[in-house]
Amino acid sequence: MDITLIIDFFPKLISYLHITLLILVAAVAIGLIIGVTIALIRIYKVPAFNRLALIYISFMRGTPILIQLFLIYFGLPALLTLVHIDVSRANPLLFVAITYGLSCGASFAEIIRGAVNGVERGQTEAAYSIGMNEKQMLVRIILPQALAMAFPNFANSVIGSLKDTSLAFTIGVMDMVGRGNTLIASSLHALEVYMTLSIIYYGVVLCLEKGFSLSEKKLQRFEGSLAVDTK
């Protein structure tokens, strides 16, 4: 083992960090859209859709991300040939973004639903009592409070997704781990490559945690000294 190789590998690997972060950002963005939609469907128990939402959440919670990745990678092109769209040559990044987006969507949906249900009934009544309509009540009163409450769980979920991106290389994505594998092939120093990767992941997670805890303080400033750890 040659520890000094880590210094050598570090710049080579971190130059692919942006791909990893790109996957994460895309996944969170897609996840937020899906999550809010599904949460609303679940909260309002929209007929038919509520059932679908339940199955979707149960499936995403019930299967490993690796299997989901393979299902999308092999299933989506097959599905799209039905409408004569050929994605068989599309960048695997696309499949990764969709898979992680779907996965985030399911967990965000449950987090948001839990938080919305956690907002006191009195807040809704107060909003109605001053003459707000349902949309104003939801957008101005309930959602801001729910999102602030949901934030710690949301942050955990995002960090989980970051760690999950380490599996994207299995369908041929050239992210940090993908680049690491080519480095291993050329240098035959697998252990040092994985040590470097671990250091980078750990660093990114620590930065995210720091950033999240700062935003959390800001977001929940209205909770004052009574802020409770929701974990």
Binding site: K163, S198, Y202, V205
Partner: peptide, 9 residues
């Protein structure tokens, strides 16, 4: 703070 894949590797 690190993926389980790293631990295994």
């Amino acid at each position: 703070g690190t993926p389980a894949l790293m631990h295994i590797m």
